[in-house]
Simulated scan of single mutants.
Amino acid sequence: MKRKLLKLTGIFILIPLLILFICHTTITNSAKGKTFDNTDEIPKNKVGLVLGTSKKLSSGHSNPYYEYRITATVRLYQAKKIDFVLVSGDNGSRYYNEPTTFKKDLVKAGIPENKIYLDYAGFRTLDSMYRAKVVFGLEKVTVISQEFHNERAIYLGKQKGLNAIGFNAKDVSGQNGLKVHVREYFARVKVFLDMFMNTQPKFFGDKIEIK
C-alpha cells in the first residue's frame, strides 16, 4: 500500500512537471531564429511593439525590466530598424498608465512623439499581440521585451497570423530575475489554456492605422 501511494505521488508530481516542460519547450522552439540581440542582424519592420510593464517595483525602486525595454526601443529606432513604436500596456486606472509613462520616457530619450502610438488595452501579452493584428492592422511586427517574453509573444502572434520577430532587451539577473523566470513557466502553460478556451482580448475597439 505504501509503495502504491509513493508511486501515485510520483505520478502526480511528474505530470505537472512534464506539462511545464512541454509548454516551455514548444514556445522556445517556435521562436528559434526569430529573436535578436544585435541591431545589425535584425531585419527591419515598420513597427516595433513594446510590451508594457510598470516603471516602479512594489518596493518603490526603479524596475530594470522597464528601463531595459526603453533602452532597447531607442536602440532599435536609432538604428533605423523600426519607423514607428507601438506601446502596449495596462491602463487600469488614472493612477496607473503604462503606455503614457512609456511614451514620456521614449520622447525624452529622443523618439519623436508623432512616431509613437499607444495601445491602452494591452492588459496581457495575448491582448497586445491580438490587438496589434486586429486593431492596428499589422501583418509584421518587431516585439521589444526580454527574450523569454519575446518568445511567448512570437508564439501568440503566430496563432493570430501575425508574423513577429523579437528584439531582446537586457535581462535581469539575481533574485528578481529568478522569480520572473519561474513565473514565465506558468505563463507559458496559460498560453495553451487560452488557446484551448479561445480566450479573446478584453477589448477590441475601432481600428487604428499606423502611418
Rank of each mutant, 00 (worst) to 15 (best):
K207V: 09
T71W: 14
L20E: 06
K104I: 06
R69K: 04
I15A: 04
K158Q: 13
M129Q: 02
F21E: 11
Q159C: 07
L17T: 12
F196K: 13
N63V: 02
I27A: 09
K179V: 15
F12N: 12
F192I: 06
H181R: 15
A153S: 03
A31R: 04
F203S: 07
T53I: 01
S58L: 15
V134A: 14
G122I: 00
G137C: 07
G89M: 00
L8P: 11
M197H: 15
V141F: 01
Y77N: 03
D206P: 12
S93C: 09
F12R: 13
R188Y: 02
L5G: 11
L17R: 10
G161F: 04
E209N: 15
V191H: 05
V180H: 14
L18Q: 11
L106E: 02
N45F: 00
L49S: 01
V182W: 10
R188L: 01
K4S: 15
N97M: 01
R69V: 02
P99T: 06
V172R: 07
V189G: 03
D127Q: 01
K55T: 07
K80G: 04
G174F: 11
S93K: 05
I22N: 03
N45E: 07
Y120D: 03
V191F: 04
K4V: 15
L49W: 01
I82Y: 05
V50P: 02
H24A: 12
H24K: 13
F21S: 12
F186K: 11
L86F: 00
A187I: 10
D171N: 13
K179D: 15
L76Q: 04
T53M: 05
K211Q: 12
K179Q: 14
I42V: 10
Q159E: 11
I165L: 09
K103H: 09
V180A: 15
L162P: 02
S145L: 07
A72W: 01
C23R: 05
L49T: 01
R188T: 00
Y130W: 14
T25H: 14
S128A: 10
Y68P: 08
G166K: 04
A72T: 05
M1L: 12
F203R: 09
Y65N: 01
L51F: 05
K80A: 04
F123S: 07
K56P: 10
H149D: 03
P64F: 02
N38I: 01
Y77L: 08
F167S: 03
S54E: 03
G137M: 08
K170G: 10
I42M: 01
D105T: 02
V191Q: 02
K179Y: 15
A132I: 00
T39W: 01
H61K: 15
R94D: 09
I165S: 03
Q200V: 04
K56V: 13
E151N: 10
E113T: 11
F21N: 11
K46Y: 06
F204E: 13
N38T: 03
R3M: 14
V85T: 06
K44L: 04
Y68N: 11
S62K: 14
S145I: 10
L51G: 04
A109R: 06
D194E: 06
H181I: 15
V85H: 06
E184K: 03
K81V: 08
V74D: 05
Q146C: 08
N91H: 12
T199M: 11
P16G: 09
F102S: 00
V143K: 02
E67T: 12
Y155N: 01
K55I: 09
G137P: 03
F12G: 12
K7N: 15
K115S: 08
E67L: 12
N45M: 05
L17H: 10
V85L: 05
Y68M: 11
